[in-house]
């Protein structure tokens, strides 16, 4: 590890930004290394497709590279790059809408007879059995979240998975904070319901004290009220 790389690894984000602005690539690369996991995770959670998530991640960091001079150092780099990531991924999602998402990248490589040297070399830190159980869990979670209407899914992802505030999520999506809250409630309730179908103990099922149909109606009425507060007021 060179001295510059070592310095970069121990410096805080603000120092790295200022060094990157001065032309230090090691400083910029360290910022990328620190935040690439989160940026990729945001892109993947929004776009739900590996290739699109990779493209969006690359675009987000290229944008950061191009506009680094414009970044005001009193703000946190993490906040800035999160915003760039969310906006880039949402833009890609909008662009993708209406287009079919058929991947052509499914073909097998042609037999050449040549034995290739192992390319992907990395230790396996986890127990494969546990890993597979985790994959099953991931699949169950994926199926439930993919069944949500997109507007509910996006709010849930930004707020609950990526930890944006209600205000930040509202700004990113261009909707009101009240709308974020009501979509979030719908998303949370729908996911809870879906996961209960898998994880709930059917022998210990509970029923609301009053009629279930009544409660469903009450919930719907309440949600409508949330969405259109004017309806609940007297004129």
């Amino acid at each position: 590890m060179s001295q510059e790389t070592h310095d970069a690894a121990t410096a805080d984000d603000a120092t790295l930004v200022s060094r990157a602005k001065g032309g230090d690539f090691a400083a910029f690369e360290e910022l990328v290394s620190r935040h690439e996991g989160r940026v990729y995770s945001i892109a993947m959670n929004i776009l739900r497709q590996r290739q699109d998530a990779e493209d969006a991640t690359q675009t987000a960091f290229l944008n950061a590279l191009e506009h680094l001079e414009r970044f005001r150092e009193e703000a946190a780099f993490a906040t800035w790059i999160t915003r760039v990531a969310v906006n880039t991924a949402l833009k890609a999602l909008r662009k993708r809408k209406g287009l079919t998402t058929v991947s052509l990248d499914g073909g097998l490589e042609a037999e050449t007879g040549e034995i290739r040297h192992p390319e992907l070399i990395a230790p396996w830190p986890g127990d494969p059995a546990k890993l597979m159980a985790q994959r099953d869990l991931k699949r169950i979670l994926d199926e439930a979240i993919e069944a949500l209407p997109e507007k509910h899914r996006l709010v849930f992802v930004l707020r609950d998975v990526e930890g944006l505030s209600v205000r930040e999520a509202a700004e990113a999506l261009g909707i009101s904070e009240a709308n974020v809250k009501v979509r979030l409630l719908r998303a949370r309730l729908a996911l809870r319901e879906a996961l209960t179908r898998t994880f709930g103990d059917p022998t210990r099922r509970l029923f609301p004290e009053h009629d279930g149909a009544d409660q469903a109606t009450a919930a719907e009425e309440l949600l409508r009220l949330y969405e259109n507060p004017a309806r609940g007021r007297t004129r």
Partner: peptide, 15 residues
């Protein structure tokens, strides 16, 4: 539900 999605939502970047 929220905890599960939060924990599982951390996606590793492919190396």
């Amino acid at each position: 539900t929220i905890r599960l999605y939060k924990d599982e939502g951390v996606v590793e970047i492919p190396i």
